[in-house]
């Protein structure tokens, strides 16, 4: 479904050049939940943004459903690939009602039958019709993220890119959103690429994952290997240890990998 070969993303030029992603390669099969793990600044979110065309790929190739993707993406692409952003407080337009937010993609793609589509999309993410005419400031964080998921699903995409979809929500709401995503995947036959720094979330959702550091893939592994705590690379071991919780002895031993 998704094939990424040797992808590099470079921002800026001259002395201010930042190599956010340095030649990474991975494949995602249809119907899979693929995890991208790494610390802040490891380039995992940039990979997602490059996949959907928000960040420019400076080298390498991206193929989605067998089609090569260039710098500019056409409308058909956006109907196939959608994204859910990390912060639901920033990803909804503050002056638009839920109705306006959800009717925008319908209008752009000229799908018609907006009322029925909006109602069913809201029902899909577990929000009743009473939420339709609210403004984002009248919603809680979890409700906002549900609206953002509804917005991504309203075009009936095949691939959903999830950029830390639960990291800005509190713990009880995180579980609800993850369960919602699992159900939607089953019902709509979706393929997920999930970015997270939370290994528990990755272990819960994914079958396969790659660990990223400093713009490179450190290790590709299955969730079973992750659960067994048997990573091959020293960086992954350190990441695993850090994810268990703060430990003074462990923190003292931390090394910077590059």
């Amino acid at each position: 479904m998704i094939e990424v070969e040797n992808l590099s993303v470079v921002f800026g030029h001259g002395a201010k050049t930042v190599h956010a992603v340095r030649g990474i390669t991975f494949h995602v099969a249809a119907g899979e939940v693929f995890g991208l793990v790494g610390e802040s600044g490891s380039g995992k979110s940039t990979v997602l943004r490059a996949l959907c065309g928000l960040a420019p790929a400076s080298a390498g190739r991206i193929a989605i459903a067998g089609e090569m993707q260039g710098k500019r993406r056409d409308r058909a692409f956006y109907k196939r690939v959608q994204m859910v952003f990390q912060d639901p407080y920033a990803s909804l337009h503050p002056r638009h009602t839920v109705d306006r937010i959800l009717s925008e993609p319908i209008a752009i793609h000229g799908l018609g039958d907006a009322d029925a589509r909006i109602d069913s999309a809201l029902a899909d993410v577990g929000l009743g019709p009473t939420f339709r005419f609210r403004y984002p400031h009248q919603l809680s964080g979890g409700q906002r993220q549900r609206v953002a998921i509804a917005r991504a699903l309203i075009l009936e995409p095949k691939i959903l890119l999830l950029d830390e979809p639960t990291s800005s929500l509190d713990v009880s709401v995180q579980a609800e959103i993850l369960n919602l995503l699992t159900r939607l995947k089953r019902e709509h036959g979706l393929t997920y690429v999930l970015v997270s720094h939370n290994l528990a979330v990755i272990a819960h959702m994914c079958a396969r994952l790659v660990v990223m550091n400093a713009g490179r893939i450190v290790e590709e592994m299955t969730v079973d290997q992750l659960r067994a705590g048997a990573p091959r690379e020293a960086y992954t071991r350190q990441l695993l240890r850090a994810s268990i919780g703060y430990d003074r002895a462990a923190a003292a031993e931390m090394v910077t990998f590059d």
Binding site: C52, L54, H93, A148
Partner: peptide
């Protein structure tokens, strides 16, 4: 939210 509407085409 601007990136999101861009992603909708």
């Amino acid at each position: 939210f601007i990136a999101a509407v861009r992603l909708q085409g």
